Simulated scan of single mutants.
Amino acid sequence: MQNHSGHDQTNHSGHGGAQPGGLSVSENGYTLELDSTIVTAGVQPVSFRVIGPDGQAVTEFTPEHEKELHFIAVRRDTAGFQHVHPVRDEKGTWSVELALEPGDWRIFADVHPAGHDGTVTLGADLAVAGPYDPRPLPEATGTAQIGEYTVALDGELVPGEARKLTLTVSRNDRPVTDLQPYLAAYGHLVALRVGDLGYLHVHPEGEPGDGTTAPGPEIAFVATAPSAGTYRLYLDFQHQDVVRTAEFTVRTTSTTRQSDAASQVAAEHRGHQHHHHGGHAHH
């Protein structure tokens, strides 16, 4: 997911940083094994293991962002996002409760097994029984409202290019300048590709206390879109001891398309000047 603090950021899931993770239940010899792949709706216990190359449940992990494992659940229509932190027993079985509405869900386990050269993001399907009412994809507005809080997104996702994304948090139209650290940063950002829920590797700029970042209102990240398309962004931030999640729909932009558009505008402007007296100006 997010790998910094001196770790090599090109080693995520065994790919280059632009490649999405979580598309496979098994990768680099590690497999996500859910105890049950069909559950009923409601608040449900979910248990699972990460099976290692030796066929045994992994019991030793290198913590990333203060946790041995980050567990993400989201319905296939991108609704119901939850970022939770399960508890592991000594045998390597993790357990946690999820609030699940009917539908097809995708489960992600983001881990750094001890001895492995980086993080691995594994994904598995979870079916929740009941009548499924899929929600349409929210519009790309650039702002998210969570109760009294507004989060504004500035920046673009460009295929194959690392770009800075800045999220600005305000409460009742006033900048929030006392965000609390959450998972070794002032915010935690998950990005998923719409269509297959490919999991992007996003990392924050700076860490609390390192002198390079402030507790709001801005939280900065660097993200690379693996392809053109539409993405869903989920920002977890903590204020006054409560973690909230802001959600965004983002469509990639192309630097080539932008420059082409600028050239087209310039050409039309020149055409307008040249042809104005000829009576066929371009509109």
Score class of each variant (00 low, 15 high):
259 S>Q: 15
121 T>G: 07
184 A>P: 00
49 R>Y: 03
217 P>V: 02
140 A>Y: 09
88 R>W: 01
261 A>Y: 15
70 H>C: 06
28 N>K: 13
11 N>C: 06
51 I>C: 02
219 I>W: 01
111 V>Y: 04
141 T>G: 01
22 G>Y: 05
200 L>T: 09
177 T>R: 11
183 L>D: 09
208 P>D: 08
246 A>S: 08
130 G>L: 06
272 H>W: 15
112 H>N: 11
182 Y>K: 00
123 G>C: 06
61 F>H: 07
12 H>I: 15
239 H>C: 08
96 V>I: 11
278 G>I: 02
206 G>D: 05
273 Q>F: 15
121 T>K: 01
5 S>D: 15
127 A>G: 02
92 G>H: 04
198 G>E: 05
271 G>T: 13
22 G>T: 05
43 V>M: 12
54 D>A: 06
57 A>K: 04
250 V>S: 02
9 Q>M: 08
167 L>F: 04
120 V>R: 01
187 G>Q: 06
26 S>W: 01
90 E>D: 10
31 T>N: 00
223 A>K: 01
257 R>P: 00
160 G>N: 08
255 T>N: 14
225 A>V: 08
256 T>Y: 10
263 S>V: 14
155 G>Q: 03
13 S>H: 12
76 R>H: 14
22 G>F: 03
221 F>M: 06
59 T>D: 05
259 S>P: 00
214 A>Y: 04
74 V>C: 08
219 I>L: 09
